[in-house]
Design a protein around this nucleic acid. Structure first.
Lengths: 326, 326
DNA sequence: CGGTAGGATGGAACCGTTTGCATAAGCATT
DNA sequence: AATGCTTATGCAAACGGTTCCATCCTACCG
């Protein structure tokens, strides 16, 4: 079917070894010969077979990405960053979505790891032990999470929460609630840490509303719960919760930010389109995805290097859901 | 490093051929032997090398997906449908995003096609000729687009537009504007066709506002343009435009749906969270993605079968941006 | 009881590359 | 002119499976 190196070799009157060398840049091949081979390959539509090449070299030129939910803007933006950087560095990209089910992750890793040179793994909630069982099988960079001894790219959500709380405090808010997300979430723990540390510093107490599904339905529940409490401000786990809450609050006739200020986390595309637009902590998802690819390349080039845990800054973006306390 | 079939064969006292047969289900191997081999493989952590298998069989067990923009909810939902169905049928998934640049698509196809058994290609705008140049290279199913002689999965947007227009008409609207998207878009042409046919039937004229970027910035522009016209209803190319318009209209003090009714297209997750929630034509993106995988499997199993062009129904979802004309 | 059919297994070729080693040619050095 | 070094190229052995074909064994049938 497709042309092979043999075809090109025959057409050029050289051996397949020379054809191979002409394509792999490395070996020395006389310039006129190289040009002749490349021209003939072009004419025949020859490109080296990736599978054959992988078999002998052990490299596939592909990397893998495992995410919990591609339809979640947080992860699709992350995936976009990964994809773009991978493409820029001529790496192919395998993607596996685990439908938010931690127990599917090990299988996803096993299925993917033989086909790639490295893996970017976004596992927000799975137990450390599950990750550890794959230590050493394939060069891996964790995304949106840290783990002792592993390469990782994460974002400084503790600081993001600090910025949020400081801002609310300076607006005069003293009765502040926090609507949390999944409890096992690594990034959730960072949020909590930032919240705790900062509330201690500022001397304000935070009312914990509990754990909610990190989507708009969870947000509707948050809205009803928060109205039953005597607070002037709400910090939400993420934008999806905040947007769901905002929608529910509007239908209950609550004025945001007049009656209640809201700050959330992520800054997804639609955060700026709500009415009022969301005040939220910007999380550089795209950049984190790209950084993960860069780190992975470093790791693949030098598997014995000491692990790097890159942390990217977050930034509070003030929009319309926050106001001075009435 | 990793165990090979030779290792398993040696440990079991059989030949590699038998090990291969034990794993490929096909060939006949005595039940006790098979069990022994599988157990030993498990113990050694052996799994057949996909590259080696591909080299000899010509099958990789992978499919590819090409989309213009993974960060666009329309396509990330589509990708999610593809991923889930691929995973369910044990296919690996390669994804390539072309950053909305048509000229990158040929390269993406070339890069991906040697690594996969089939391709799902979402190319909303590229010229037919560009697609045709890849006819016959790899089994391909077009997504969200049709092309004579090709397998495809698309959604009935012409009918969606009909539903939208009929609904507005029955609410009493007679002065209706349409804010279009990219002009070369295949699905845009379907929308236009549905609009033309139905407006003719109903005897209403539609005011064409031109072509806008299919994102929220485009939507802001649409808002300003539509206010300069004497219309009571707006049909928007997609939800992103509608949400952008809604946000801009709110800041200009326009009451939706009191002063202006809006219907858009897609029904992305955040369509129901705006204030008021969007009336929009639901497009089954997830299901379309899954259907594309099913069709692709049919095509891969039977490459000479006559092409199937599957069209999925759309459905107007009435929410809060439409009301009877004042 | 002999012939044979059929299932289980092994041997070996093959898929399309890369790469270490050998070889040949060309050129400069002495 | 002989030697040695460099450079270009070919040969052939991998890589890790799959599969055709041959062989062996067993069981069945007449």
């Amino acid at each position: 079917m497709a042309a092979t190196s043999r075809d090109v070799a025959r057409a050029c009157g050289v051996s397949v070894a020379t054809v191979s060398r002409a394509f792999s840049e490395k070996g020395s091949v006389a310039e006129p010969t190289r040009r002749r081979i490349l021209a003939e390959a072009e004419r025949l539509g020859y490109l080296p077979d990736p599978a054959a090449r992988r078999l002998i070299t052990g490299r596939s030129g592909n990397i893998g990405l495992i995410v919990p939910d591609l339809a979640n803007p947080f992860f699709s933006d992350t995936a976009k960053g990964v994809e773009r950087e991978a493409r820029a560095t001529r790496l192919g990209l395998f993607i596996s979505d685990t439908d938010e089910q931690d127990r599917l992750e090990p299988d996803a890793v096993r299925r993917i790891c033989r086909q790639v040179d490295g893996l970017i793994w976004a596992s927000p909630r799975n137990a450390d032990e599950v990750l550890l069982q794959f230590a050493g099988t394939v060069p891996t960079v964790l995304l949106h999470r840290q783990l002792e001894g592993w390469w990782s790219v994460s974002t400084d959500l503790a600081d993001g929460m600090r910025q949020a709380l400081v801002n609310l405090h300076s607006l005069g808010h003293r009765r502040i609630a926090y609507a949390g997300g999944p409890e096992q979430s690594w990034s959730g723990q960072q949020r909590l840490r930032g919240l705790m540390e900062t509330s201690e510093e500022l001397g304000v107490e935070i009312m914990m509303l509990g754990s909610f599904a990190p989507n708009s339905d969870g947000g509707s529940m948050v809205a009803d719960v928060v109205l039953s409490r005597d607070v002037s401000a709400l910090i939400a786990y993420n934008d999806a919760i905040a947007l769901g809450a905002l929608s529910r609050l509007a239908s209950r006739g609550v004025d945001v930010p007049g009656d209640l200020s809201i700050i959330s986390c992520d800054d997804i595309a639609y955060a700026k389109l709500s009415a009022p637009p969301l005040t939220t902590v910007h999380v550089p998802r795209h950049e984190a995805g790209a950084a993960a690819v860069d780190l992975l390349q470093e790791l693949m080039a030098n598997p014995d290097a000491p692990p790097v845990a890159k942390v990217m800054a977050t930034q509070l973006v003030i929009r319309g859901t926050t106001a001075p306390v009435a």
